[in-house]
Design a protein around this nucleic acid. Structure first.
Length: 230
DNA sequence: CTATGATCATGA
DNA sequence: TCATGATCATAG
């Protein structure tokens, strides 16, 4: 009755017990192609990412044993580590900005940088560089050596400055007017299935109104620095 | 709808 | 050419 000829059984990977174990797993992935990793995991490779934009990230989460699922927690819950793929262009530089989290002024206690969602997300990040030039077939793209990062004091200060300036405007009800051109390292851009999606926000009068949801993103000028410094 | 994972597709 | 604004898939 069972037909296993179409795909291999999916291998189950347990969460790493420590950051060291996680980094060892990353070392084993470095130098492999997405196709090799997908085959080992019994995952099929789409033709391209147009309708599978999160495929690479999801594949690497499975390969490394991330256990947060789609919950609002770090990918490696017990370790407090968030994983981000870093798409690289032909020059080996970041090709796209990095999504961090949605812009929201819910939850009291999240109105300071220290307690902000952005800072918690970026407290400890495992960056996994991946070739992303679309001239390279998806399955043939190589994974680079991942590294664990925590913001330096200097980086944290710039991020805090950006966050505070952007959030000031959000609180004033100017979220709809915010443009991606603002912010040195952090920027605010649309984040939704499409532009007709509406979420609750705050108008300039302090009233609730429907607005297009937006998210925080790290500019490539920032992730480029992370690549250089390791 | 919001959360997760991001990249696509144009205009400047 | 490349950053901004728009969009894609899926689970709950």
């Amino acid at each position: 009755m069972n037909d296993n000829t179409q795909s291999l059984p999916k291998r189950r990977i347990f969460p790493p017990q420590s950051a060291e174990e996680l980094l060892v797993r990353c070392g084993n992935l470095a130098g492999k192609t997405l196709g090799q990793i997908a085959t080992e995991l019994g995952v099929s490779v789409p033709d391209d990412l147009k309708r599978h934009k999160g495929w690479v990230g999801n594949l690497l989460e499975i390969a490394l044993g991330a256990d947060a699922g789609n919950k609002a927690q770090p990918d490696f819950v017990a370790l407090g580590i968030e994983m981000k793929t870093l798409p690289l262009n032909a020059q080996g530089l970041p090709k796209e900005s990095t999504y961090v989290c949605t812009v929201s002024l819910q939850q009291t206690g999240e109105m300071t940088w220290q307690a902000s969602w952005v800072r918690r997300k970026l407290a400890q990040v495992l960056w996994v560089p991946v070739e992303a030039e679309n001239t390279i077939p998806l399955a043939e793209r190589y994974i680079g050596q991942a590294w664990l990062w925590q913001p330096t004091i200097e980086q944290d200060l710039v991020l805090q400055h950006d966050w505070e300036e952007l959030m000031d405007r959000v609180v004033l009800g100017q979220q709809d007017e915010l443009t991606a051109k603002e912010g040195e390292y952090l920027q605010i851009r649309p984040k939704a299935a499409h532009s007709r999606v509406l979420a609750k926000g705050v108008s300039r009068v302090g009233l609730t109104e429907k607005i297009n949801p937006k998210g925080f993103y790290l500019r490539t000028v920032f992730t480029k620095q992370l690549l250089e410094r390791g």
